[in-house]
Every structure is written in structure tokens, then in C-alpha cells.
Amino acid sequence: MSTSGSSPIVTIMGCVIVAIRDDLDDREVLMLQDQLVEEVARVKARGVIIDIASLEIVDTFAGRMLGSMAQMAHMMNARTIVVGMRPAVAMTLVELGMTLDGVETALNADRAMSLILGRRIKPS
């Protein structure tokens, strides 16, 4: 397990999972991105799950990080899924003009895991 600030990064069944703690400054956002990319390479991950449920705001900087994370992971053959986006955050991102094209989303980490692992997990 590694950490960025107090956001722990864990890998479960080839999925790199991070729950971003609230209020990262820009430097911490970039550090987290670096750590995620390194972890994806280290464990040869199939997917990255970024839980942003505790984020009250996602501005253009954090939004861009989510987008580039998805692109980088894609080039390393891993899928990135953002989970837990608050409704107010979604509305704000759209008004900002950031639609996060190319970033997959899911309701929660459970669903994201099933998406990444595909049919290997049977729905209960």
C-alpha cells in the first residue's frame, strides 16, 4: 500500500483503488496521478478505480487529472473508472464545460470492480 497525502492506494484483484480524500491541492493531485500510474505499471493492473465521493468540488485542474489518468491507464491496457461523483459536482463540471469524455463512471466501487473484472465475477 502506498499513500498520497492521506489517500491510501490499494490493489485488489488487479484493480488499483484510491479513495481521494477531500481537498488536495494541485501539487498533491499531480503526486497522486504519478503514484497511480506507477502502481498500475507495478502490478500490471487491469483497472483503476478512483473514488471521489468525499470531494465536494472538482475543478478544471482535478478534472483534467481524471481525464489524463484515464488516458495514461488506457495506454497501459487498464481501464479507469471514476465512482461516487456527487450530483452537485456533476452539474458543476458540465457548466464548466468539462464533460470528462473518455472517463468511465460507475455508481460505486463494487460496480466498477465488476466492470473491470468482466464476467469473472458473477452478479449476485
Binding site: 465536494e56 452537485a88 464548466l96
Partner: peptide, 17 residues
Amino acid sequence: SAIKKTKFVTAVSEIAR
């Protein structure tokens, strides 16, 4: 409200940056 808060704080973030 939650939406007003999020919008305002996001705007502040952009301008302060």
C-alpha cells in the same frame, strides 16, 4: 444549498489558481 456551494467554491478555485 449543496449545488450553490459547489458552484461557488469551484469558481473560487479557478480564480484563486
